[in-house]
């Protein structure tokens, strides 16, 4: 309800500021706020009553009141801050300095490669893939021959190998991939097989921002009756959703890896571009035969990915060499 003879805004401001200055406690200034700035306060009431003014005066009056509302609001904020600060001054003599840093133990942490690997392995573990590990120094037959890469096969050029200096018929190497664990696992057990295998791998490569001669890899393998390429797509799609976000899509493109047929390269959509994150495919019948599985009965899929590459994508890391530099300026960020 409009007052019969409304005080001018100047008058109102003076009254309000005087009573604010008189408020000494939090509860008092809160009462003041409700009286003047509250939903049913003086200013709101005045603003609502503007409709009763002649149309030509309304705009001016409204602007006037709104400016006053802003000024009073600022005055309230200042007063409230002043009161909370003055509480410190009036603190009891045995008060503690709550601003001194707390006493903490050092923050340790996982290496980002391990962090990434755990996250990836967890995804597959949840889907029934068990984690298995194997040797880093590996027999040639597990790393190549039994994966359908015989000696003098051009596919050996795809992976430059670090060989162990050794006098024996059976050649030994630093594994170039985690795929030997496919063979080691299948040799040991009958289907169904569902494993993921993380670990270090090595290639004879010149090192630069995107190439390291040592890196981690995670291998995946599922073999049973009725395992299909569509299952591979579904499994990796689920992986992409969990690691890269629920909106992510994946894409297959034809690629060649000797131990799978068909073979694909898997990309994930990343800020509008497709980024290749792994190789995959249906286990080659020769590989199944080699471990004594009947390829007429069983099918399987396999995939392999580099956790460092995925971490680089995810954390915007520009140089793969950071991962083995062990510099705390890098490690401490994770």
């Amino acid at each position: 309800m409009p007052e019969a003879s409304p005080a001018s805004t100047q008058e109102l401001e003076r009254t309000a500021l005087d009573s604010l200055a008189a408020a000494k406690s939090e509860s008092e200034i809160e009462e003041w706020r409700i009286e003047y700035l509250g939903r049913r306060g003086v200013l709101s009431t005045r603003l609502r009553s503007i409709g009763t003014l002649p149309p030509e005066a309304r705009r001016e009056a409204g602007a006037d009141l709104n400016r006053l509302k802003n000024r009073l609001g600022n005055a309230f904020d200042e007063a409230a801050q002043h009161i909370s600060e003055s509480k410190l001054d009036f603190a009891p003599a045995d008060a503690i300095d709550i601003t001194l840093p707390g006493r903490r133990s050092n923050l340790g942490g996982l290496h980002p490669s391990e962090m990434m690997m755990r996250e990836i392995l967890d995804v597959f573990n949840d889907m029934g893939f068990q984690t298995v590990e194997g040797p880093i120094v590996e027999l040639e037959k597990y790393n190549f021959d039994m994966l359908n890469v015989p000696a003098d096969h051009p596919a050996r050029d795809l992976q430059d190998t670090l060989w162990i200096d050794r006098n024996s018929d059976e050649r030994v190497l630093l594994r170039t991939q985690t795929s030997p664990m496919q063979i080691r696992t299948m040799e040991k057990q009958e289907p169904p097989v569902r494993i993921v295998s993380p670990g270090l791998c090595f290639r004879h490569e010149a090192t630069d921002a995107t190439h390291e001669w040592q890196f981690h890899q995670i291998e995946g393998l599922a073999v049973d009756e009725g395992v299909t390429m569509s299952d591979l797509k579904g499994t990796l799609y689920e992986f992409a959703r969990r690691i890269f976000g629920t909106q992510r899509k994946i894409r297959f493109r034809c690629d060649y890896f000797p131990f799978v047929e068909p073979g694909v390269d898997v990309s994930v959509d990343w800020d509008g571009r497709w980024v290749e994150i792994m190789g995959a495919g249906m286990v080659h019948p020769k590989v199944l035969e080699g471990v004594g599985y009947d390829p007429a009965k069983y099918t399987g899929f396999a995939f392999g990915m580099g956790p460092e590459r995925i971490a680089m994508l995810r954390y915007n890391i520009e140089d793969i060499r950071h991962f083995f530099s062990n510099d705390l300026r890098f490690l401490s960020q994770f």
């Binding site: 029934g128 299909t228 694909v264």
Partner: peptide
Amino acid sequence: GYDDLPATGVAGRVPRWEPGATH
């Protein structure tokens, strides 16, 4: 092309868990 290939999950038997995992 692989774009229209459906995405299905692995069905069937869940492999038996093997003890002694180093990790």
